[in-house]
Design a protein around this nucleic acid. Sequence first.
DNA 1: TTTAATTAGGATATAAATATCCGATTATCT
DNA 2: AGATAATCGGATATTTATATCCTAATTAAA
Lengths: 134, 134
Amino acid sequence: MFSNSTKYAIRTIEYLLHNNSDEKKSVVKLAAELDIPQPYLSKIMQQLSKGDIISSSKGRGGGFYLSDENMKRPLIDIVVCIEGYNVFDKCILGLKECSDKNPCLLHKYYGVFKASLVKPINQDSIKELFKLPN
Amino acid sequence: MFSNSTKYAIRTIEYLLHNNSDEKKSVVKLAAELDIPQPYLSKIMQQLSKGDIISSSKGRGGGFYLSDENMKRPLIDIVVCIEGYNVFDKCILGLKECSDKNPCLLHKYYGVFKASLVKPINQDSIKELFKLPN
DNA sequence: TTTAATTAGGATATAAATATCCGATTATCT
DNA sequence: AGATAATCGGATATTTATATCCTAATTAAA
Ligand code: SF4
Ligand code: SF4
């Protein structure tokens, strides 16, 4: 469903969200903490930063963090930033078009799937989505 | 979610199911009909045949078709045959373990997803799953 | 002002998925 | 028997995803 890069991105952002102290997190720390190849994660973070999904500050004591604005974005924005498009807009069987008018035979199942998993991913802010249970 | 190869496999098997005349279908026909690269589809069909997901007969007039046994298998068997494992058993965030005891923050959505899409894919026979609407 | 810690960015390496090619084998038809 | 139409199977090519490496730019602390 998600590429490796996207999985790394989501996990890292969830981590940032739940460890949102004043202290910014360096790639070295994040990679160690989340068990992700460090130079690879570095590239991913760069891309997310460029896409305004996360925030960064350079130099000593710098690192990555989430601004209030960042936290308002839905999870799908992370996916789009990394993969280049919304994976849920594509047909799961690779057909050119998916429509309610001309449904394939997985359509009825896919509808429920969309409502259950895709809707929160597309609409809820990550802050809301990843809210810790009380 | 599914690899390209798996998508091709599913689409081809759905086609075989709905065009299940006496006549066997050659790869050349199937590839043309379904708009799939012919030599590539050939490889996929070989693999499915080896895994007893579909049936084949060699020689002139031969081709691929679905036996009654073939039609009883659930869709997941196609996926496993091509990808080598059940993609739905893996964590969608790439974590080592997914359990109800130690849930991640997508867990509550994932449950509904499994019930809605994964259950029929894992359990219903393709004949049932791909039943034409009345 | 120097040093150390950090992100940014370009170039490259490796692995996996996707796709093609060709010869061998098998069965049917003439 | 010979020609033809098909699957089978191995080898290889191409493209994309994954991962690493190195240097520059920036900022804070010493
Ligand atoms: S419902 Fe059918 S056509 Fe639409 S995305 Fe799913 S598989 Fe594709
Ligand atoms: S519920 Fe969480 S841990 Fe389990 S598969 Fe989904 S994302 Fe992974």
